[in-house]
Amino acid sequence: MMDTKRTTFQNKWLPYVLLAPQLFITLIFFIWPAGQAVKSSFEREDPFGFSTVFVGLQHYARLMQDPNYLDSFLRTAVFAVAVTVISMLLGLLFAVAVDRLMRSARVYTTLLVWPYAVAPVVAGVLWFFLFNSSTGILPYYLSFFGIKWDHNLNGTHAMILIIIAAAWKQISYNFLFFLAGLQSVPHTLMEAAAIDGSGPIKRFFDISLPLLSPTTFFLFIVNVNYTMFDTFSIVDATTNGGPAQSTNILVYKVYQDGYLGLNLGSSSAQSVLLMLIVIVLIFVQFRFVERRVQY
């Protein structure tokens, strides 16, 4: 990871100048706030902000006993797994289909990639409109099946709404990576298998899918990361964490407790826990990248 060129330029101060802007921004707006979050997660501030007391792990202990927080943890897990599974499965199906076609592959790719560019907040608003209980088109059709849709009152409905909106936006991403993975499967393997008499479905499960496993694993991590952090605006545009906390995922709760609720200590402790989750995810991802390079 850390190689340079065999020969390098000799200059005492130039590399520092070149790095300065990036390092400056990183230190001030990333490292310092992260340090502050760790620091204030161990402190309690009086309501007027005059004094702070060191309280040790009190905020963490409280979070671990707070049913709301544990509940939010669980909901985030459900949300992340649902979005990841749905968007990866559809992305894979689309990729397999497009990979089969020669001439029209490019056209279909164009037809399927653009949702990536739709802002999460716009995606939220679009699905909110489709599912809007008074005027939306989907509740109208659902009513034929006896389903009375109302994501303003029904927590499960609200969760389904944000899952669909978040997954919809992510399909194109997974599709592109799966397609790239499929296109790098050696053609000769496929032909050999075909000559041996295995059909397209058997070939997919015996050859493509195993060879796609690095891509699948990579996408799994990226998607979990996406659902945990990038979906803030989808939640903010649609459910605001409600009804009754049912869509209050961890990243939204940090914002609610800290920015709206002004509970700095607890919000900081939540931030620190989230950072630990990201660090674990990224660590796993990079371990895997190293392994892939060796193959």
Binding site: W32, Q36, S271, V278
Partner: peptide, 23 residues
């Protein structure tokens, strides 16, 4: 320097909202 840059990957803005806002 490399590691400091690398760390930014681990700290999306959503995660450190309050302290960044304060700074």
């Amino acid at each position: 320097a490399f590691w400091i840059i690398f760390i930014t990957l681990m700290l999306p803005v959503e995660v450190r909202i309050m302290p960044t806002y304060k700074i």
